[in-house]
Design a protein around this nucleic acid. Structure first.
Ligand code: FES
Ligand code: FES
Lengths: 152, 152
DNA sequence: GTTATCCGGACTACCACAGTCCTGATTGGA
DNA sequence: TCCAATCAGGACTGTGGTAGTCCGGATAAC
């Protein structure tokens, strides 16, 4: 299904929420604002901090703050921070678990360009792009029939 | 990691192998030629047949045969046949498990353009492209046009 | 000193995937 | 006619990664 982890979805929500305020925001505050469980928000934020997407301030009155503007954060960075480097298959470079049939597989290295294409695609969309159209989202009725991916 | 299943990798290998010969080929034959375990090859072929990528001939002297040329099979089709419809997150259309916070999540529907961009990228690369290693490197359609969920 | 917050990790439950195998249905040939 | 080869479709199990939670410790404001 080519699906990315749910944590990445949360990360986008959290990052967009972080961009709204100027000062630092705490994990419980973001959890309350987004509806995501608090421990999960903390986990996401810690991972994002490790990926240099947000910076943290410890101690009382501490919290998290965006490191760059939303328009400077491509989705590829979020995915890489949460899910690790983008590696479609076990055979592309950068994958931890090497492929066992690298010696005789005729497709060796063939996935690399595909992987690169996806990476480029995800690097071309920033969080600011995703945020666009966010305003009416609160009152939009439940409606998901915009796309029909089963048209292959 | 945005990884797709290993079965999809096998499927590409199997399909490329199928394109080499003219007549039908059996599961054990392909397994021997590719080094992939025979039951796995059979499973992949059955799934590909269900997706109309290959056609099968039952009985003695039976086997599998490509339904279209490699250049007419985009990778998106292979992924869709093996891994199901491309759905990055649980919130995009086509996902089986709906998102539980659809009612109040501000990011609802925001992943659809991203998903569509990936789908377009994968539809622009065919198996023939992968076989040759020559890729239309700049056919990655991720620009402003891809962000409008009007196409497809 | 106390309190609020982040840090880093360990921990478990769960589910999708990978891989195998079995029982039929179909077809060609002996 | 009967048999052998082959696909069809599912059931089955082990494994690995993900989701989510929790704890003790470090840090900084008050
Ligand atoms: S399957 Fe890994 S190199 Fe081909
Ligand atoms: S997390 Fe599913 S709609 Fe936002």
């Amino acid at each position: 299904m080519l699906r990315l982890s749910k944590l990445t979805d949360y990360a986008v929500v959290v990052l967009v929420r972080l961009s709204g305020m100027e000062g630092v925001q705490t994990s419980p505050g973001i959890a309350a604002a987004t509806g995501i469980p608090e421990p999960t928000v903390a986990k996401v934020l810690k991972t994002l901090a490790a990926g240099d997407l947000v910076c943290s301030q410890r101690g009382a009155k501490g919290g998290y703050r965006l490191n760059r503007d939303l328009s400077a954060i491509p989705i590829a960075d979020v995915i890489a921070a949460i899910d690790g480097p983008i590696a479609l298959t076990a055979c592309v470079e950068g994958s931890s678990t090497g492929c066992e049939s690298q010696g005789l597989c005729p497709m060796r290295g063939r996935w690399d360009p595909v992987n690169d294409a996806i990476h480029k695609a995800l690097s071309g969309i920033t969080l600011a792009d995703m945020q666009r159209g966010l305003l009416p989202a609160f009152r939009v009725p439940v409606h998901q029939a915009a796309l029909q991916p089963a048209a292959q």
